[in-house]
Design a protein around this nucleic acid. Sequence first.
DNA 1: TCAGTTATGGAAATGATTACCATGTGCGTC
DNA 2: GACGCACATGGTAATCATTTCCATAACTGA
Lengths: 140, 140
Amino acid sequence: MPWRPTRQRKAVLSALHDCAGFTSAQELHEALEADGIPIGLTTVYRALHALDRSGQVDVVREKSGERLYRPRPADGHRHYLVCRDCGLSTAVDADAVERWAEDVAGTMGFAEVEHTVELTGVCDRCRVTPAVRSSAEQHS
Amino acid sequence: MPWRPTRQRKAVLSALHDCAGFTSAQELHEALEADGIPIGLTTVYRALHALDRSGQVDVVREKSGERLYRPRPADGHRHYLVCRDCGLSTAVDADAVERWAEDVAGTMGFAEVEHTVELTGVCDRCRVTPAVRSSAEQHS
DNA sequence: TCAGTTATGGAAATGATTACCATGTGCGTC
DNA sequence: GACGCACATGGTAATCATTTCCATAACTGA
Ligand SMILES: [Zn+2]
Ligand SMILES: [Zn+2]
Ligand SMILES: [Zn+2]
Ligand SMILES: [Zn+2]
């Protein structure tokens, strides 16, 4: 399974790092095109899929089912607290959950256990000044 | 917002209780039709949506994005450990997670916090006798 | 250069879910 | 019981993210 660091793949990874929070495939595609980087939507999906398989991105699903991506921080597996209003996302400490997952799996005799944990809420700022969720401008 | 307990709505709720584990809207629809209960797919979706809003079912999403439903046990909010192979699902104790979620949310200044937690793995039995995931027959 | 593999991207397909809308049903009223 | 209206149903068509197809392009090693 060779891996060619093509212009497109590098562009996707780069564009992903330029985004503050979680971003969808389609948003990324638009952003790239807007930057004058011609790339097919299919290729964006493929690149994200590959990044996911190789563990370079974290993926969450929003209520609609759309997948949102975010470059994974260097220190590995994380979970996030995401504002439903503005999209602001913050990595949180989840050691307790990690331990719990291990525990439960062991107790129940399950193997190859995976977990997804998603926390959503309304952030401090949005409680005061409700914002519309937009990929372009998320307050940092 | 009145609530008429129509033939169809009662049938959906009943069919849902007849299923061992999590079930999709379409599976439910097929099961109902197979039982000679004529009902529109649209109606099944509406009924499940209503049950969800009123907190009578738990919902999870599988990798494909398909929504799976399960009647919520009387004792309220639960999380499940689901076998990726056969679909066997088991409610697990998640007090640790509940507390963690509260904690994190409070610390970060978020309000109206919601969480989704999904545990998947391969169950004891499936490690020995791999089964194909099928809604119809899930070992209990 | 040549062949073989890998990557790209437009268009068409997929598949769950939702929107529309004309029709049907429950139910309180007269 | 008949009437009227709000609520419910269900077929079909639309939506929409994602995937599949497939012909073409780019890359790599010999
Ligand atoms: Zn916010
Ligand atoms: Zn984790
Ligand atoms: Zn199993
Ligand atoms: Zn919980």
